[in-house]
Computed example of a mutant assay.
Amino acid sequence: MTTPHNPLCPTHHGGRCPAPAPATLLFLHGMGATARSWDPVVRRLPATAHTLAYDQRGHGHSAFGRRPPTGLAQLGDDLARVLTHPSDCFPGPMVLVGHSAGGIAIMHCAATHPHLFGTRVTGAALISTTAGRLDPTCGLRAPAGPALARLFLHLTRSRTPVSSLLLHLMTTTRWPLYGRTAPRPTRRACSAMIRSTPPATLDALLRRLSTHDGPALTALTRVPVLIAVGADDRLTPRPHSRALAQLLPHAHLVEVAGAGHVLPLEAPDLLAHHLRRLLPPE
């Protein structure tokens, strides 16, 4: 797995290992995005904050490896490899921050590598994500909703590329990605990332999303957790974050008025504020 930011080196410190820190924020982007989607949030963190980001498999500058992503669980295994790789730059605790599919990767990592949580991982943020049972209609009412659901399920079960439909919806309209307050530059930046993602990546992950049902979250009960969702999120709407909050009753749930699915770009100030609370005092 190759990345534009070496996952074993700091992303925002000029390529030099920073001084030891109480914890490092490790950012995981969503499907169709890249590590750069976190830049607005990172810029709003204190200058002393240590941050790490990498392009997930099949996104941005990261290669497929031997094959395209075989599912969301594979992204969780990739995360575990980053967490366990020896690193002089980031030897201490990590706070995981995942948006959408990045949040799902954290959940799969917690389910299959629980020993990392409460030890290497000291906190987590699940942003605009879900533990399963997604609505393929994205909240559309009849007759458009059921028709879209049937089309989506047909595409995920056939060899027809699902990504063509997704690309059209997400790069030409405000629906279903953005809330009513998302400015045009934000939508352009997100569209550019989606368009640059290989169709094979989108197809592989979309097919798994249609059957995604939540992994065990027991390991996440060992660490502080932030759950955040846009009030206008149509892809992973508020009931999904509220369900996560019920499974993780110690978590802090934040619902952002006017925002849609792309919180790292739509509400970076608010996210940076809440992420600071996951970091131990220096």
Rank of each mutant, 00 (worst) to 15 (best):
A147P: 03
G103M: 08
R141S: 14
D269G: 14
L169K: 05
L134V: 13
A105K: 04
A245P: 08
S62G: 09
P20A: 09
G102C: 01
P10Y: 09
R187H: 00
R277T: 02
R180G: 03
T112I: 00
A110N: 05
Y54E: 11
G139Q: 01
A23K: 01
G14Q: 08
P91C: 14
L275A: 04
T130N: 04
I106R: 03
Y54V: 14
G98Q: 07
H240T: 07
G98F: 11
V262A: 02
R150Q: 11
L79A: 05
C17T: 10
P281A: 10
R184A: 08
P22C: 07
P7N: 10
P46Q: 07
H212C: 12
A110K: 10
H212T: 07
F64E: 00
L25V: 09
R276I: 11
A259T: 09
A200S: 04
A19Y: 02
A192L: 11
A245D: 05
H61T: 10
A124F: 13
L270C: 07
I104D: 02
H59T: 01
P4S: 15
T48A: 15
L52M: 12
L206M: 14
T171Y: 13
P224H: 09
L235W: 08
P199D: 13
S37T: 14
A204T: 04
R43T: 11
V262S: 05
P46I: 14
A147T: 08
E282S: 12
A243R: 15
H108V: 01
G145Q: 13
H13S: 10
H113T: 03
A219C: 02
R174G: 08
I227R: 03
D232F: 03
P91A: 15
L26E: 08
P68F: 06
C109A: 08
M31S: 03
A63K: 08
M31R: 00
T197R: 03
V41T: 15
S196C: 12
P185C: 00
V95Q: 05
H99G: 04
R81P: 00
A21T: 15
V223H: 11
A243K: 05
V82Y: 03
T48M: 09
G30Q: 04
H273E: 08
H273I: 01
T122M: 10
C109R: 02
I194P: 01
R67L: 01
S210K: 06
G123F: 12
L217W: 01
A23C: 07
